[in-house]
Design a protein around this nucleic acid. Structure first.
Length: 302
DNA sequence: GAGTTTGAAACT
DNA sequence: CAGTTTCAAACTC
């Protein structure tokens, strides 16, 4: 699919993912944009897309519906694992994505958790006890506890292991900004703003931000720099049930932005990968919590 | 670029 | 809750 173009080439810059939905109208979690809490924009190749500001009411309603079914549906899939259960191996979590884990775990049967079909692997995190995968060989840490982290995995099928290490290295090496794993989620959803955001984060704003113009024009105006930053952050709607997450977020060295989500809930946007725990991002791991006033236009119509 | 594989999400 | 279907991304050719 064409869409991953940004990954292959520009990678670096921008790389805000865009979808290619044909049947979901971008109103289901199948849609990466929708799932990430962002509106579809120009680079998307979707068909019959409803995930646009114009259909804000539909989007909000759908989100609500999905959330009612699963309150964590829009929660980050990967959480930093502060309580080192997984780090038993001793490698310092500070240098490996293994310090985070996929919240729900994967259910891989054939990929051995070695391909991006695996959500854990895709996110650059190891599998955990939450996973029900079979034949797990996740390069970032296996379900059975072996953690990849430094590439000192234990042996097994050498070839496999080798491959595994290579792939992991690939991830680690990504210079850029946001390797898939930490998709840049973000925030293109109507987040209120005006003034938020830190200009310092405005590195790369080409690609996505340039084309993102369509999205944020509801009066709320993100400055370009803002958007670029958004492109590298993650927005997270916080529900009551997620306080624990909040704590995690707050405690972890990530950039947090307290905002208001489309459904009137607080929203946290933060860099998932702190420089400490991820080799992919190294911008200092500072923590910021910003307050963003509620945005009027976000109010769902009734 | 077309076709296949895969597993999450949605549905029954 | 388990089994099945749908879907779109990941992958292969």
């Amino acid at each position: 699919m064409g869409r991953r173009k940004s990954e292959q080439a520009g990678e670096g810059e921008s790389s805000c993912k865009r979808c290619n939905c044909k049947k979901s109208k971008c109103l289901k979690l199948y849609c990466e944009c929708f799932a990430a809490g962002v509106y579809c924009i120009e680079p998307c190749s979707c068909v019959d897309c409803f995930n646009k500001p114009i259909h804000e009411d539909v989007v909000l309603a759908t989100r609500k519906q999905i959330e009612s079914r699963n309150p964590l549906a829009f929660a980050p899939k990967v959480i930093r694992n502060s309580d080192s259960i997984m780090e038993a191996t001793g490698d310092d979590a500070s240098k490996t994505p293994a310090s985070a884990r996929h919240k729900r775990g994967c259910n891989c049967k054939k990929s051995n958790c070695l391909k991006k079909y695996c959500e854990c692997y895709q996110s650059g995190v190891g599998c955990s006890i939450n996973c029900r995968c079979e034949g797990c060989k996740n390069a970032f840490g296996r379900k059975d506890g072996s953690s990849f982290a430094g590439l000192d995995i234990e042996q097994d099928e050498e070839n496999e292991t080798e491959k595994t290490q290579q792939t992991a290295e690939l991830f680690n090496r990504a210079p850029l900004s946001t390797p898939m794993p930490l998709r840049q989620p973000l925030a293109q959803l109507p987040i209120s703003s005006n003034n938020i955001l830190l200009p310092q984060q405005s590195h790369h704003l080409h690609g996505a931000s340039g084309s993102s113009s369509g999205i944020y024009n509801k009066g709320q105006s993100f400055r370009k720099e803002d958007m670029s930053m958004l492109c590298h952050s993650r927005i997270e709607t916080i529900t009551e049930e997620r306080e624990e997450d909040i704590e995690n977020l707050i405690q972890s060295p990530i950039t947090n932005i307290n905002a208001v989500s489309p459904n009137s809930r607080r929203v946290y946007m933060h860099h998932l990968d702190s420089s400490e725990s991820s080799p992919w991002r190294r911008n200092g791991g500072r923590k910021l919590i910003l307050s963003i006033p509620t945005f009027p236009s976000l109010t769902p119509h009734h």
